[in-house]
Design a binder for these strands. Structure first.
Lengths: 292, 292
DNA sequence: GGCGACCATGAGTCCATTTCATGAACATAG
DNA sequence: CTATGTTCATGAAATGGACTCATGGTCGCC
């Protein structure tokens, strides 16, 4: 069966057209070269070189083989390079999910840096709730997640802090309270609230409800929406007020006014999370970038 | 250094994801497979397979290598196929030159048959004089020639008969003699002749002049032209008469009338000729086709 | 005709690969 | 919780291919 060593040796002879020089180039002696070429010719079933007494010339078959042998060696080189690149996480894919507000915080810059450092890695970004992200990690359909603890069941998952944020009140720009200084949560006692469904975004939901309770009222939820942008879209059209991550400040700023909540319990931490499997190299590189 | 055997074995393991089955498929036992993969991993410097106790899985590096390893093997197969095809003359080039009239005789059908039998061979056809063809054969810029003996110096060249032809008189259609039955060469004693230069087309030139001499006159050459089509173009525009190969009958038949010369010495033989070198496979195939 | 330049050949050594036998780890079943 | 079976890893010995060294054979060239 044919073999790269044979091809390498043949290429040397075909390029030098001289067995001895070819052998020198290959750091070997001439006799085995003769043998290799002979066996190669036997395997192919055709003469590759015409050995005149003083000249060696390529036959048409030899010329054809030379061309394709070079391609084969290059392909083999590509193969090991590809494997090394994949192992080092320089090429490949990275599936990253995140809660809606994350991309307005540190994540944006992290992704940008990662892309610059690893331009050949295909990043698949997907916004998802914390619960869905955990499922995806467990099913292996996602590599990394930016989510909001607490998790219903963190067994087997690896968590590390990634970003800090706090809550803020989001009001329609036309709202009477939008101009008020020193707005506090209790001012919203009688306001219609837009909120995530309790099933989704458990972290946010609980945190908001708890803060309201501490402020002495239960929020009147008039509408639920399914993602960060959905909630804020409803605020923008004056369906009600909402409590959202402060990093959203600036989003739809013509229609929405944000009031940071500087009270205990308004802070929260976003975590970078990955599943029980061995991290794939691209994901490991993302972690490294995120650690800087 | 990397090697196709390693790649073949890796592919088997990567496809079966099972060392023992892969070994069976390769007609070998399992231990050396383990060793090969380990050495491959060492050479690449990365893990290719995750060996769980009961499952073997590909790492990203393994997946990348698998893909490229398949391409490499395919490329190697292509290489030996290409060499075999070239050796058998199924692919390659064939440079064939011929005297102007040849393509109106047996050569046309021979080329057609050859093309059907060897569609992947690139044929370079070129009309040339016998003298130029001999030069081209000697310089190695042509593989085969269809020419008209005698050759000035045939040493080292191989000749074989290829086609028979005879001479014919070519007259402008409007010429007075064009309608005459039983036209003989001596009727042209006073006609202006179009002829090849003596240096070119030596065979034709000599043969024509000799026939005229036998018929008792020396042709009045009013114009010389450099190729078969040039001579006949001059006849067509009534510059004079010419003696040309009978196979040209039908060429510009609206303007030219042909009268076959059924006299001794009007016959001649076209030969297939090749140089002193070993015939390239494509040329050998052409010879075979021509021998049928 | 001798010389020199090459490729081909042959004997012996060395190293890689293979087979065979066995070990070790882990999952599953009873 | 132990017994068993499956699967990959390891080790020793045999096999075979590739290499080195030395030499032969052929042809052009001085």
């Amino acid at each position: 069966m044919i073999d790269l060593r044979q091809l390498r040796q043949f290429i040397a002879v075909a390029e030098e057209l001289h067995f001895h020089r070819a052998a020198e180039r290959l750091n070997m002696s001439q006799p085995p070269l003769t043998a290799t070429i002979r066996r190669l010719e036997d395997e192919i079933g055709a003469q590759l070189l015409e050995r005149g007494n003083r000249v060696v010339r390529l036959t048409p078959a030899g010329r054809a083989l030379l061309e394709h042998a070079r391609l084969t060696l290059r392909q083999a080189d590509l193969a090991i390079t590809a494997a090394r690149d994949a192992a080092a996480g320089r090429v490949g894919t990275l599936r990253l999910t995140y809660v809606g507000s994350a991309m307005y915080g540190r994540l944006a810059e992290t992704v940008r840096t990662f892309r610059r450092s690893f331009p050949q890695v295909q990043i698949e970004l997907k916004e998802a709730t914390t619960a869905d992200q955990v499922t995806a990690l467990r099913e292996g359909t996602s590599d990394l997640a930016i989510l909001l603890p607490p998790l219903p069941d963190a067994s087997g998952l690896h968590l590390r802090e990634f970003d800090e944020d706090r809550l803020a009140i989001a009001l329609p720009a036309a709202h009477a309270l939008a101009r008020k200084e020193g707005l506090s949560l209790s001012d919203l006692a009688d306001e219609p609230f837009v909120l995530w469904p309790a099933a989704e975004g458990r972290g946010f939901h609980h945190q908001v409800v708890e803060l309201c309770t501490s402020a002495g009222f239960a929020p009147q939820v008039v509408q639920e929406a399914h993602q960060m942008h959905g909630v804020l879209a409803l605020v923008a059209v004056e369906t009600g007020v909402a409590v959202v991550p402060a990093s959203m400040v600036g989003f739809r700023s013509a229609e929405i006014v944000y009031k940071p909540l500087d009270i205990p319990g308004s802070r929260f931490t976003l975590c970078l999370c990955h599943g029980p499997e061995q991290l794939k190299p691209t994901a490991q590189n993302f972690l490294d970038v995120a650690s800087r």
